[in-house]
Design a protein around this nucleic acid. Sequence first.
RNA 1: GGGCGGAUAGUUCAGCGGAAGAACACCUGCCUUACACGCAGGGGGUCACAGGUUCGAACCCUGUUUCGCCCACCA
Length: 900
Amino acid sequence: MKRNRDLEKSYSPEGIEQKWYDDWISKDLFVAKTVNSPQDGAPSPKGHFSIVIPPPNVTGSLHMGHAFNNTFQDILCRTRRMQGYDVLWLPGTDHAGIATQNVVERDIEKGGATRHSLGREKFVQKVWEWKELYGNRIIKQMKRLGNSCDWSRERFTLDDGLSKAVREVFVRLYKKDLIYKGKYIINWCSRCHTAISDLEVEYEDVNGKFYYVKYPFADGEGAKDDGIIITTTRPETILGDVAVAVHPRSENSRFVGRKVRVPLTGRIVPIIEDNMVDPEFGTGYVKITPAHDAVDYLVGKRHDLEQLQVIDSKGIMNENALSYQGLTIEEARKKTSEDISKLGLMVKVEEIIHSLGHCQRCRTTVEPFLSEQWFVRTKPLADRGVKVVKDGLIKWFPEQWEKTYFQWMENVRDWCISRQIWWGHRIPAWTCQDCGHITVYENDPAECEKCGSINIVQDEDVLDTWFSSALWPFSTMGWPEKNPDLEYYYPTSLMVTGFDIIFFWVSRMIMMGLEFMDEVPFKDVYIHSLIRDEKGHKMSKSSGNVIDPLDMIDKYGADGLRMALAALSTQGRDILLSSSKIETFRFFMNKLWNAARFALMNLDDEKKEIIFSDLRLHDRWILDRTQDVIESTTKLIDEYNIGEAARSLYDFVWGDICDWYIEMAKPSLHGDEGDKRRNASQAVLEHVFHSVLLLLHPFTPFVTEELWDAFGYGEKGCGKPIVISEWPVRDECFRFESSKNEMIFLQETVRVIRNLRAEAGLTPQQLVNSVYIQTENKEYSDILASNKSQLAMLCKVKDIEFMSDAGEKKTGGCLSEVTAFAEIYLFVGDILDIDSEIKRLEKDMEALQKNLSVNLSKLGNESFISRAPAEVVEQERQRSIEAQAQIERIKNNMESIRRL
RNA sequence: GGGCGGAUAGUUCAGCGGAAGAACACCUGCCUUACACGCAGGGGGUCACAGGUUCGAACCCUGUUUCGCCCACCA
């Protein structure tokens, strides 16, 4: 083994991370196998493990959510790669229609341009330029995190291949009547100037006014009841009223069939009955405005009412709004309410808090708006999506999310997929100007498929971004073409994402995957929690509480950040992150580094075999623990419980290896117990580090690769990089069950003695001459007796005495503590000072040496030898030998005390 | 209105049927040749409340209180 013992005294990630990432990339270690191709050959007997990354927005930059999500996926991919699976982690980015368009619009505004002043073609060109400039930023950031993605397969949702898939899907769905075009009430953002889907509307409580308005009877019968009172929050929509509704079984239903006069417009409208009215709410009378309210729209449909539009797509009152034409919604609201008051029809106005929809992208209030849009008929697709989960073909982690999914899927409504923006996949539909027929086709058609006219124009709208995202698991692998990747890596193994996009994305991928691949898009879905700031608030630029993962990588290293994210994660609870929490794990990287440094300082180049007869308790214990950790880590990762996996590795390294094993192995590593023991400890240490580096690699790829190399396991030592080294498995040879309990005896005793020492106020320089242990437990006393030197090492005690009754010792200056196994006594008077102990020994030695030199001079004197009797000479000779031995012993003694 | 999740040490959270744990923070000692990004020790908890199941409950069941989140056609 070629060891590198020349490690820095503390771990600094700079340089190391970049070095290894470049190395991995240059060796194509993340490039997935193209199975059955001439260069890659047959698939692994283990099979495949594939993940498609949730594609981040091209204009975005890496935030903590991405960092967490990507770390999770990377841990799985790296583990599976080491386990011998054919791993594909497919990366890419999303064109993010409205979001990106908004960003670029804001950018060109600085130069005084608008998208309309540029025109469609030029504007789209601008967005592409933007994408070329900044679209790569997030990819670079992912690389710094250590993502082991196959960058050779990187995709973008507007790539040619993916665009082709989008068209194919659109056409097939249209032909199956699963896509249709129609005039419906949709959510309209007057700022983005486009329709948005139900999911893109976010409801928020806002202050508003609740107007009580009287609608007089118009049929002359109501002499006594001169009218009814409706309630509304939007008086400007009174201009579009075409009816008033009551609940059929309410008190108010007695007026059904009568007519009232709508204020301002003077329109005579009927009172109708509809179940949608809550008789308990407001006055129990609801004005019906089918063109400007989603509920009213449905009521209008049921009762065949006119859809009277009074507001246009820009949020301006239109020609139907009489004198209010040209006003904005806000202006019209003020004016109409004033005018109603003037007419004496405003009964009262209340302040209320009500929930209002806002555009997810720009926070503008969303208006219900009647317009012609494209929709996906979702129900038939959803039914299948529900079934596969019920049948267990897709498993959710944590399981509870399954319910959320079912709830949405079982009540799913048609999906509005057309957007009145320019950045995205343009809808492949052409309307014939002559016959009005709509031609929907994969390739741009030259003529109307019905009448053959060449006078056809393509639909102006583009598709919802999520339409292309829904195809991501198979469109990225080449669909609709047949392709070895698609055949081998689809369905993917796992989807990792946040709960916020279960409806937007996960459910739609399931529906599309089933429709077009006839198979689920992934077998497991892992829904992770949200990252929040330390106070539990959502991180956002506006509140200034963002912890930038790139800053954290600069400060603490990618490994520290990754370990923190992994270890802090728990199932089903949000993660409250702070810089200091990440720091804790940076310290862990240093601890690992130094433990490895210690090991390297104590290992020879030659690799030692583990010889069982030379092992002592702590050796057997750490070998046994290592096997347990190998097994449990593997199991936890299989269950996607990376939080527990990371935490248990942390505890194992810090608590078991550093705090106990290394401390206990020091005497033998220093050679105090002879060569055999030194070899044994070296062999054990090597095994432990070899295993733990492998186990930690998915979590902290960079340090582990660096240390792997330093131990000589990497290419310099004629091995392989850790990235592609074999994942460890439990070695049954190293199962030492009894070591677990025996070690507990020892640890418990050490803790108690240390505790007693602290109670007695002893300094580290003070040596306890002896502790007395009273116990009936033979096994316990045997274990302690055979580990005296470790005990001395760990708690600075010279000797242990066992006794059945310590009664006579319990006088003055005695401290004691009872444990589960024994009662332990320490006498405050029975303390040796290390320095004076050494002085005492030095004195002894001096005296001995004096005697010895006298002896030796006698033996060197010829007249003494010739005159003295033979037995006296022999006696003197014996004495000198004894003295020499004793000096040797005292020397050793001094050495070991000095070490304490 | 429906659904989901949380309530455990000062703080952030693990634990989810068998003697209350970690990390920060706090207090006391220590620069002991792997590590002060460290070592050793310490204080601190009716595990939200009330019932129940069990030999045994922080953990299971039933309520209650309370804080979040998601969905839904309260105009």
